[in-house]
Design a protein around this nucleic acid. Structure first.
Lengths: 243, 243
DNA sequence: CTGGCAATAACGTCAGACGTTTTTGATTGA
DNA sequence: TCAATCAAAAACGTCTGACGTTATTGCCAG
């Protein structure tokens, strides 16, 4: 039942179910600017663009919707989610905690075999972009940096949850004010490399907090309009689902 | 374009797209015990059970998979996710932060009009089950209690993320050791009602931490087998998706 | 220029089909 | 008897086509 090297990691399903490819490409497209927040996604459109059937498109849409990357209005199609200022702030509030945790865990595990080398490599790769920012390659290097942190931390759930926190969308917004915080990265990296759990957590949280502040200074037009909660009404909405 | 009371809340899509109903029922079924972790979900089965077409079933599956409630292995179908001890611990590590945040925000906003009454109502409803625990109704009351907290906190993203944190699955595990922590609930409620942000956050985090400890004391057989990470290998997995 | 109505385009869902992959069950050889 | 083997059956991934429902568009009249 094995040929030679049967999936060393544990996840055996490398099959990339077509619909997953759409999901992937769309998210990547967000980074690359091929898709922008608010853009409408019509099924016939996507069918043609990706050369797949409607079922496949719909599955991709459902997945993206569940991850919060897009929103679907019944009978009106899907569109890439656009964050309001409040939503962005709320997301970053959560992200702050998650990144803090990731950094702390990374610092705690940096001593395990292989980790230090892996992290250092990702960090150096990011540093290479110190003077050539804003490129798509730089974004990827930064993503790998983050990813290295969460991987070393070893909390796979973090990896699973983080993407669904609309980091993409926040980043998209942030592209406008990209004065990338290399000082932050340095503080995080040093704390992690020093195995300083508390320091790493603080550095990670600070980083997100600064990011949030920068984002709040962006002009209104980069955000979706704030939707009035009306009056704390519809409270008897009852068990809307699970939770 | 409005008749009289056009969706006061803001979310106008009350349409419950059939596949969402499946998602909902399945999650509810987890609480009720109609579904158990590890259970396999074959498409033809679900089609018959819910009387819907395959497309619908598949969309529900995709959604549940994106939320992490189930796992899909290509060509081998889906099954309800079963947490290993480590996964459960990792999830609770994250949940601790999120609940802490939710409690803090709730304490901060308890003064806004209507909030106090709403919260108190949910709290009292929960207290009613002090002596009649373990019932499904009690679980729902507890959920409403949690939900009241996050709603008052006002961070909608928290609401969106929390379900995808497998609270259900953790709870399912915990049903075995349900010595429900009413002392915790009381501490949380009092801190929130007092508007004590720091205290509420601490109470919320303590609650989850205690829960985690209780869960760690459960015997092995309630968890999925730990899967060996093999050797920190497959590191050049590259940009596996987004993040 | 605005309101109303019909035509059109999407969406939600179902049914059936086809190639691919896994699972199952029976057959066969040790 | 038991394990390896192989063919049949069951599921899965995806596509095409269809039908009723809902939004959106564009035209027409006022």
């Amino acid at each position: 039942m094995d040929k030679e090297n049967p999936e060393i990691g544990g996840k055996a399903e490398n099959r990339v179910s077509s619909s997953d490819q759409i999901v992937r490409d769309l998210v990547r497209g967000l980074y690359e600017g091929r898709y922008v927040a608010g853009q409408r996604l019509a099924e016939p459109d996507l069918m043609r663009r990706y050369g797949v059937g409607r079922s496949t498109v719909r599955e991709a849409i459902k997945r993206l919707a569940a991850e919060g990357v897009i929103t679907v209005h019944a009978y009106r199609g899907a569109q890439i989610r656009q964050l309001s200022r409040t939503e962005a702030r709320n997301i970053l509030l959560i992200l702050e905690l998650m990144i803090g945790l990731a950094c702390r865990l990374a610092a705690a595990n940096i001593g395990l075999p292989g980790r230090r080398a892996h992290f250092d490599q990702a960090y150096q790769a990011l540093l290479a972009f110190r003077n050539e920012r804003d490129s798509y390659e730089m974004v990827r290097a930064r993503n790998r940096f983050y990813r290295a942190i969460t991987q070393i931390g070893g909390n796979k759930e973090l990896d699973r949850i983080l993407p669904s926190i609309q980091v993409h969308l926040v980043r998209t917004h942030l592209k406008q004010s990209t004065e990338d915080r290399f000082a932050d990265y340095r503080a995080i990296a040093e704390a992690i490399l020093a195995g300083d759990e508390t320091g790493a957590e603080a550095a990670g949280r600070d980083h997100i907090r600064l990011t949030s502040q920068a984002l709040q200074q962006l002009p209104d037009h980069v955000f979706a309009p704030e939707e009035q909660p009306s009056a704390f009404a519809e409270f008897t909405s009852e068990d809307a689902e699970d939770a």
